[in-house]
Design a protein around this nucleic acid. Sequence first.
DNA 1: TGCAAACCATAAC
DNA 2: GTTATGGTTTGCA
Length: 203
Amino acid sequence: MKNGTKWKLMIEVHVLNLDGIWFGVACDQLQIVASSFSPTQQKTLSNVLASIPYQKPFQVFVKPSDFAQTASVCIKKIYDGQGVDEPLPLAYASLPAYTQKVLKATLQIPLGYVASYGAIAKAVGGSPRAVGNVMASNPFAPIVPCHRVVKTDLKLGGYGGGLRVKVELLNREKRGFSHSKQVQVDDGSLTVFPAEYVLNSLV
DNA sequence: TGCAAACCATAAC
DNA sequence: GTTATGGTTTGCA
């Protein structure tokens, strides 16, 4: 734990169960390093550990720090379809530049809306396939709302946490919007569609 | 519809 | 370096 003269930055890993879902978050004192959720504690924990992008000592706490507590509550709110008022500080720095761009663009998709892989690719550069890759390895689920990214034909596409969860999240987030709109991302704009478009096409 | 090829950033070797 | 791998898209039959 100690490295000679001073403390290393410690990563704290915390899991909690809310409504039968295990939420996990890894953070240091300043920002979230990784997050995940799944039906089992073990899977959540291993997901989070696998997502920690660099080797640092970490510790699993039973009693979370204030920051970890706040982060967990935010994740739960997101899972409930409520969204959060304040953006959570995420540790992007260690991720590849393109990954950062895609994640940031994904964060711009408003609650209740979805965007396509292709549209994101257009906005940030690269190809839809590459965007899909970033989503697949999204270390900040569900904080970065990769569940709001779908195929061009408004079919679901895939989801790391399982398609059932993706549908569930979109169902909770839907707000009865009826028109697509444009949102600004980094250096382009992104067309987003109401979540209903996707949910309605499921039946 | 369904298939095949192009797409392109990463991770793994 | 090189290769394999996708949460996709598009075009063509």
